[in-house]
């Protein structure tokens, strides 16, 4: 196992997200997160690297409270996620956008309607339906679609688009939230290299344009090195690497994938995956 590098954080007082000793267990034997402590500074792109089952997704999903910790404290944008009630979480999530490995669009709805669903959290009353998005919201959705280069596909069903296009629609859906934080869970794991590159380029561009704090989980070390400001390596639910990308050598980054040194963690991971499936 790698030593945990201690890093001096330039903005350590102004962190957007803070994890303090967060542990997440599934059942009795599976520990997905094991006393994780980490901070995420504003306007920076952090990539989480690690194998399947290393705890990347679990960590991401604790940031917006899609999962709750078994122990420890999480603060996102000033909200204590581990303690927050339903209403508080919903308010927090309006400011925290998320994109997913499988895009998670409603295939039978149009692209435009899918983008509009990003703002449901801010809509109230009867306006929560299929056809009842306000005209101003629709216009804004069209602008966000133009931004990701898909305005011409606005009235097509979402399932007629290619994977890369669907992920760009998901990014437009995230943008229409006008978020402060963007969480990306394996955004390119289901895409071919060309689509991956265009999605990563788009993510980089909008992150800088919108001053987003980005936390993104990835499998590919090369993409992480080119895309991030900081890399957080996870192994068996523990943080084993935390470095500025500029300071990191590819060998360090790849060593996260070195499982031979610790066969016990392999067994842990397969149990974890079994528990999830």
């Amino acid at each position: 196992m790698l030593p945990v590098h201690s890093v001096s954080h330039p903005h350590s007082n102004a962190e957007v997200i803070r994890f303090t000793d967060v542990t997440k267990r599934f059942g009795e034997n599976v520990t997905a997160l094991d006393s994780v402590s980490a901070e995420f500074q504003p306007n920076r792109i952090t990539v989480l690297l690690g194998l399947s089952g290393s705890g990347k997704s679990t960590l991401l999903r604790h940031i917006n409270g899609l999962q709750r910790p078994s122990a420890g404290e999480i603060t996102t944008l000033g909200t204590r996620v581990d303690l927050a009630g339903t209403g508080q979480l919903r308010r927090l999530r309006r400011d925290v956008a998320m994109i997913f490995q499988h895009f998670n669009l409603v295939g039978s709805m149009t692209v435009l309607e899918n983008v509009c669903t990003g703002r449901l959290g801010s809509l109230r009353g009867p306006r929560m339906g299929l056809f009842m998005f306000p005209r101003t919201l629709r216009a804004e959705a069209m602008e966000q679609l133009a931004r990701v280069g898909l305005a011409d596909k606005a009235f097509q069903r979402a399932d007629t688009l290619s994977g890369g296009q669907q992920q760009r629609v998901a990014i437009a859906r995230a943008l229409i939230q006008r978020p402060k934080v963007l969480l990306a869970d394996e955004p390119v794991a289901s895409l071919d290299p060309v689509s991956s590159a265009s999605v990563i380029d788009l993510l980089t561009r909008i992150s800088h344009e919108e001053n987003l704090t980005v936390v993104c989980s990835l499998h590919q070390v090369e993409i992480a090195l080119g895309f991030s400001d900081r890399i957080l390596g996870l192994q068996g639910g523990r943080v084993v690497l935390d470095e500025e990308t500029a300071d990191i050598s590819p060998e360090d980054a790849y060593s996260i994938y070195d499982r031979v040194a610790n066969p016990a963690s392999v067994a842990d991971e397969s149990r974890f995956e079994a528990a999830l499936s």
């Binding site: 309006r94 998320m98 499988h102 669009l105 709805m109 669903t117 449901l120 959290g121 299929l130 995230a174």
Partner: peptide, 24 residues
């Protein structure tokens, strides 16, 4: 997936059902 996406952006339970479940 779509239901989770709506939940992750702050949609209420009713919104998740109407916009995430019903179209499917």
């Amino acid at each position: 997936g779509p239901v989770e996406a709506i939940r992750a952006s702050g949609g209420s339970r009713a919104q998740q059902i109407i916009s995430g479940v019903f179209p499917q």
